[in-house]
């Protein structure tokens, strides 16, 4: 990992960038969490590296944009993957973009999630921080021409494969809550996401019904303090 530069400490991992086999590469290192009991930490870390790699490969197979996977190093707790030179998170994008672009993005998020769920991939940690907006032409420009942008899903550490409406519903619920807690017009953004989701899935009725159920579950659990 020489010549790699630390660019971010996320909640789960340290992110480095550099060159690997001549390609701009991002290393995601799930470093040791000192607060966790060592055996538990190692077990969880390995599970998540495996989950992430599997989900990325599966997404690639069905045509969902994710970073390309270059190397898995379980010993050093690292994943090597494609680095996007010019990208911002959907969270940053929504904070600055025009209403028109936010609407387009919301729609695209919905359509992408639909495709993901149609293939029984559950992301497990959907937030607007885990969706990247990448300029396909390598330009450092995100707010002028929407057609030049593509949407890339990242952070599959909690991903798994499941065909149940329950898990898909929870997946959407997690995203809804993340949007509510951070964005100014959550109803509109999530409304559009769901609209696109409905349009692009077959079994959506079950999933949306589950989502409604999970939302209620959310309110019920408030009991004693």
């Amino acid at each position: 990992m020489e010549n790699f530069e630390l660019i971010k400490q996320g909640a789960e991992a340290r992110i480095f960038k550099g060159l690997y086999l001549g390609k701009p590469t991002l290393i995601k290192q799930r470093f040791e969490k000192k607060y966790r009991y060592p055996d538990l930490d190692e077990h969880l870390t390995k599970e998540r590296i495996k989950a992430e790699s599997r989900a990325i490969v599966r997404c690639k197979n069905v045509g969902i944009e994710t970073p390309a996977l270059y190397l898995i190093d379980l010993k050093k707790r690292c994943l090597y993957m494609e680095y996007f030179e010019h990208s911002i998170t959907a969270k940053e994008f929504i904070m600055e973009a025009s209403n028109e672009f936010i609407e387009k993005l919301s729609y695209d998020i919905g359509a992408t999630l639909a495709k993901m769920h149609e293939n029984n991939i559950i992301h497990g940690d959907l937030t607007t921080s885990n969706i990247l907006i990448v300029n396909q032409f390598g330009e450092k420009c995100f707010f002028k021409d929407y057609s030049k942008l593509k949407l890339v899903l990242i952070d599959f550490g909690l991903a798994h494969i499941d065909n149940s409406a329950e898990d898909k519903g929870v997946d959407l619920y997690v995203l809804e809550r993340a949007i509510i807690s951070i964005h100014d017009n959550p109803e509109k953004i999530f409304g559009l996401i769901l609209k696109a989701y409905r349009k692009n899935t077959n079994g959506h009725n079950n999933v949306i019904a589950k989502l409604d159920e999970v939302r209620l579950r959310g309110r019920k659990r408030l009991v004693v303090g």
């Binding site: 929870v170 809550r177 807690s181 659990r221 408030l222 009991v223």
Partner: peptide, 25 residues
């Protein structure tokens, strides 16, 4: 606590529940 488990952040004039238990506290 015995009845609540919530991760909370203040946003737009309210204490928003960012994460919580989906079953028991």
């Amino acid at each position: 606590s015995g009845g609540n488990t919530q991760v909370i952040a203040f946003c737009r004039k309210r204490y928003r529940i960012v994460g919580e238990t989906i079953d028991i506290a």
